[in-house]
Design a protein around this nucleic acid. Structure first.
Lengths: 236, 236, 236, 236
DNA sequence: AATGAATGAGCTTTCATTCAT
DNA sequence: AATGAATGAAAGCTCATTCAT
């Protein structure tokens, strides 16, 4: 069930130096945590490497023995975050398949789970989500361009499989364009995710959907979105 | 038909100094154009005020006699861009009302027009769109917070009116949550817009929907999205 | 009675341009007042010519048609202030002579009057006094060096006359060194004056003499100083 | 004998960063020397940090790793200078006590020693003295306000002790106001000190006391001043 | 492997002065 | 004479990166 992309993704050479692979796990964790906080709060350009080192209790010299550059640290963080997000997504896929043997719901059910997963991820790792947003920025295009694979590749193939399965099961319209449908679903998904992590998108969500989202953790919104999606793909 | 927000929005004090209001129109245009290019390409933090001045053929001293700070210039640009985008949106609304007297299509028709408007805006002003994306970033939250109004406010009220009218006309389901529906539509809209302006989102769109978007200017994608939306709100 | 220095002092070419001599009296007064405030508060180097112009309601262009440079404005102010201070000193001298026909008190009486005059001047024109202090600074030596005469010249000759008269009247010791005595008196005088105009010297005066100076406007301190001086010069 | 103020003064947190405390003694000395020269010659505002760095042969980056700001460097210098001056003053007090066991002279003897100490300090460190003068300026009031203690506090308590002792020994009049007397003595002292360090006050001293001060290093003037002071406080 | 002092290019911003109108 | 937009050198300060220890 795990797509080949994922495995191969794991094989790309890391952005960190060999030294970083050997150090104490706790030291590693602390460094990454501090880096995530700094990059999330200030954005790549305004983030301060020396500050991260100081807060992690490691020397700036060590910092540069772990990472070639500020860029390398940033990309390492994104990579690490991707790994976790990837796992969350695959779990969602696996869970859908398990509970939906008959394929009665298919892609709609998967979408519902992804909404939950994304919201949970965004709330658990708001800073990582903020960093992803920053990375989509045009100014960071040269940087993001160095990422050897894209999370979108995984998500897209995940959608493709589920859409194909749903079509096969006849639970969605046959004539639906799989690419357009995936794009449609993922657009809804990522903005929803940002809405639980970034100040800007959170405010925006409140402007559109009202403050009720705070009360029910977005469950009402998820229900509405899933309902809209269900009807949009339903046959007949 | 024009919401009160729009008018009042026009009355906020500008972010530029009085001097900037008096200078030659061509000089003004060139300066803003160069600033937009710089901010779009590098992002707020990496953008270089001296570079903008040099490229505009004005002295750095003049620059600072027009704008209090780098921030003020950035906010001025966003404000100017908002004005144009606002006009595009209101035109779309007006056009919908004119061609849709019977209200047969209502919100779906409006959404279709907004997709076109947004795509056209993103292609005409890709750099402004990139700047908006940058402004949604967490690192620029303190900056964006200084914007006295939000484009979302206008868009949201625009959706609300159309949704109410469509409900009244009976062309969409009565039980739909207007807030959730607006959120759903606008999420689709903004990512679609980004997809025609930013390298990152353009690549992403291709991964999901394939390269055909380049061939037909996204018309196929628009058709698919509108169809999905139409079915998602259709009564019965 | 008026020393030749004073008259000739009035004949030095002014630091301002001819234009400044012709403008409206009120405009002139306002400009000088604003300049005094700015120079006093920030010191010569940190003072801002453009700010002075703005606050005076005159254009920076006019500013430079009145004064060659920032320096010229500064020196003009000092000159104007000197004129007033000079008058106060000569008044003090005249008053002493009038009330002290017998020369019974002589230099001591003059010193007492000068203390009062200086205190009053410092309280009436604290900003001018602050500017004099700034002008004694080493960093402004090249500037002060351009002053064609010194207030000290006047004060010194004023002391000389009075000391000579007192010696002639036999009210002070014959063997006193006139120069040293004048230096002694004037040192006491200028620090006393600064103490009523500058934050630093006011605080210092309170540290030494206690807060009582605030209650009685320094009268007690003046009495003490005069008494010390009287005994220091008394014959026998 | 050392007043509590002095000890506690030494315990205030320094204005420099920890790094500055660790560097090579020679490097430190050179930097401070160059900084003193620059600040003394140009005054705080006109002084140029980059210039100081260049002349010290250190990078501007190092400069800012030693001191938070231009202000911090300035205050560090004043602090260091105070330390030396403080020592000179306490030495003068100790010397007076040693040679004046009988208390025959008391405060007058102390004053004589202070005049010598101040002159010597001003001649040895003319630039530091010029900086103190600059610091008394109104424009630097916010800066001086950050100094956690005042040299005046020490000087004042030094005078108080000596005056009290002299009164106890009966060598000066009992009815003298200690505060006013201290103020009187210190006014004479500081202007005398400035007169050996600053161009302005040196010129002024010559105007009052003649050029003889250059020939005898001011010894004649000191003798005159001490004599005036002795008579001003003498009993009977 | 780790340290952290040192570096200096580069950035934003200020302001005395000029000059076309 | 008056205006005020324009100028640009210069200043304080930041921070990614290097390297001697």
């Amino acid at each position: 069930m795990i797509p080949p992309d994922i495995d191969s993704a794991a094989e790309w050479p890391p952005f960190y130096k060999a030294t970083f692979g050997k150090i104490d796990e706790e030291r590693k964790r602390l460094l990454l945590e501090m880096a995530v906080a700094e990059f999330a709060q200030k954005g790549f350009n305004a983030a301060n490497i020396n500050e991260i080192a100081k807060r992690s209790g490691i020397s700036i010299g060590s910092m540069y023995s772990y990472f070639e550059s500020k860029e390398a640290l940033f990309l390492t963080i994104i990579d690490e975050g991707y790994r976790v997000l990837r796992e969350a997504l695959t779990e969602a896929e696996a869970a859908t398949e398990a509970s939906d043997k008959a394929g009665a719901e298919g892609i709609v059910s998967l979408f519902a789970r992804l909404l939950h997963s994304s919201r949970d991820y965004a709330r658990k790792y708001p800073e990582l989500t903020q960093i992803y947003l920053d990375a989509t920025t045009q100014g960071l295009a040269p940087l993001s361009g160095r990422l050897s694979y894209r999370l979108e590749t995984i998500t897209a193939s995940l959608y493709q499989r589920s859409i194909a399965a749903s079509k096969a099961a006849g639970t969605i319209r046959q004539e639906l364009d799989a690419g357009a449908l995936a794009f449609y679903l993922d657009n809804l998904l990522i903005v929803f995710q940002f809405s639980f992590a970034s100040d800007y998108y959170r405010d925006r969500m409140r402007i559109f959907a009202g403050d009720s989202v705070d009360a029910d953790d977005g469950e009402g919104l998820i229900a509405s979105l899933v309902d809209l999606v269900r009807r949009s793909v339903a046959p007949g």
